[in-house]
């Protein structure tokens, strides 16, 4: 089963270079809408057998054997416990009597698809995880660790209440928002680490292929499944945990969780996934 790592870089000849070159242009030529179209076209033309809404299921949209095991396990998933814990946390008032729901539109139910958003006040991308910690701090509670189980459980529950809702990420008419988008895109396509891989090396060039022994997920819709329960972890992990472990796996130095750049990457990837349904919390090998 051991296949060559990332067969043939020559495969990298479709839309990805167009996306790459976009990052090299001057700021005034950034065109997220054009990027979005090229990105969508690349994945749908390369994987004609994968229904658009199925990309959010990552490797399970690419491999029948994996899909069967996933469906069997997902019928009564091991992440049920994290989900229950997240629900309980979400509904438990802070010491001041307020709840998470008070910090969010629609009391925090079914809102996952609107995150991350660009905050024109602070000039930064705010992810759901960051919004949750802001909520905690505004109510006199200590923030959670972005890589740990509490944040994973809480975001799992919020994603669960949003399943099926479609990503609706907006880039406001603000040069800082475009700059954040561009930085995220650039990070995603920049090679790093001892293996000299970019995020795109795995998730644009080679989804459905194998890196070592695992089936790689497509970048299209990849954030829709967050947070994810990984059998490898034996638990639910946040998007920060996924980003940092991806960096580590290519022997690169991870950023700190919810670093501005990671938030920009999430912003870029979520915008690329606009219109796709939230499937989180997801499960992955």
């Amino acid at each position: 089963m051991r296949r060559a790592v990332l067969l043939g870089l020559a495969m990298f000849t479709l839309a990805a270079p167009q996306i790459l070159t976009a990052t090299c242009h001057a700021a005034d030529s950034i065109n997220p809408q054009a990027d979005f179209k090229a990105f969508r076209k690349y994945f749908t033309e390369r994987f004609t057998n994968v229904p658009l809404n199925d990309f959010v299921n990552g490797p399970y949209s690419m491999d029948a054997g994996l899909r069967k095991q996933w469906l069997e396990i997902d019928a009564f998933p091991p992440y049920q416990f994290a989900l229950d814990k997240g629900k309980e946390m979400f509904n438990t008032p802070f010491k001041n009597g307020k709840t998470y729901g008070d910090c969010f539109p629609n009391k925090g139910i079914g809102v996952r698809q609107d995150y991350p958003y660009f905050d024109t006040k602070s000039g930064e991308v705010i992810t759901l995880d960051v919004a949750l910690n802001q909520c905690r701090e505004a109510n006199g509670e200590k923030p959670f660790d972005y890589s740990k189980d509490d944040m994973a459980a809480l975001t799992a529950y919020m994603a669960y209440t949003s399943r099926g809702k479609r990503f609706d990420i907006k880039i406001p008419d603000d040069p800082r928002a475009l700059a954040a988008y561009e930085k995220g895109e650039e990070y995603f396509y920049t090679r790093r680490g001892q293996l000299n891989f970019s995020c795109a090396s795995c998730h644009v060039q080679n989804p459905g292929g194998h890196l070592r022994t695992e089936v790689l997920a497509p970048a299209l819709g990849i954030v829709a499944a967050m947070p994810i329960y990984r059998s490898e972890w034996g638990g639910m992990g946040t998007i920060s945990r996924r980003f940092t472990s991806c960096n580590s796996q290519v022997r690169a130095t991870p950023l700190k969780p919810e670093d501005e750049l990671y938030r920009d990457v999430e912003y870029y990837l979520s915008y690329m996934s606009n219109g796709l349904p939230i499937s989180g919390p997801g499960a992955r090998p």
């Binding site: 070592r212 022994t213 695992e214 994810i228 490898e232």
Partner: peptide
């Protein structure tokens, strides 16, 4: 049943 081990997946 073939068993492979983890790497950069998902």
């Amino acid at each position: 049943v073939k068993v492979t081990v983890g790497g950069c997946g998902g």
